[in-house]
Amino acid sequence: MAVSNADIAEIVHNCCSPLAYDIELHQFVFGTQPDLRLRVERLRSAFAAQGRKVYSEDFNLILRHAGSPGFQGPTVSVNNLAESDVMTGEIICMTFGSAERPLMMVKMSASEYLTREGRRYCYGSGNTFRIGSRLIDSDGHETPVIRSIEFIMPSQPMIAAGSEFIGNYYRLPVADSLWELADIADEIRSKGLPAHCHRLCRTARSLGAGPLTLLSIINAAHIS
């Protein structure tokens, strides 16, 4: 994708909609505006007038990546990783033994993790995730051998969606605990409340949580 970060931000600003719960996808997303086709054509003309060509595939890719954590961003592989070196709000993805489905989890607070499926794990702060070794959680459950460890990074479109819809969360340090976000999402689910997306975004901003962290947490908590 040969589109600059400024162009990505402009596309997200014009075409994406604020955080909402998508009933069909059963997850929170930064969706698209209802008159998307018109907006895309208008933007494409504006880019063309400035001598820049942005293809339909670029728009599709940007809008897909901006909206949902399901469209995985870039990754960084590591061989071993001390639990204490994982930042609160970071998302790590591990594969085990012969299992095809990776374990993707967000660090919620010191040594506490929330998986994509909404399960909560606690690993000792002295623990190290190491390829070739096994993981034992606080309940004594042991995993098969770790095959790979990756950090999931936010994509540029998602970063643009974050500053557009969450605001300047990056001005604050990331909070030591992000459980408040999971609790709100859980409350929305259990009480059948209408999705309090403003409240979720406001809380994310005050906790210094970015868009990928926010979406990962609230979707996991909403499932559980």
């Binding site: 970060n5 400024a6 970071e90 950090f151 990074m153 540029q156 970063i159 974050g162 500053s163 001005r171």
Partner: peptide, 13 residues
Amino acid sequence: HIIDVYGNILNPQ
């Protein structure tokens, strides 16, 4: 420029 742990620039430019 405000960056995250991966070097991504988070504030609008």
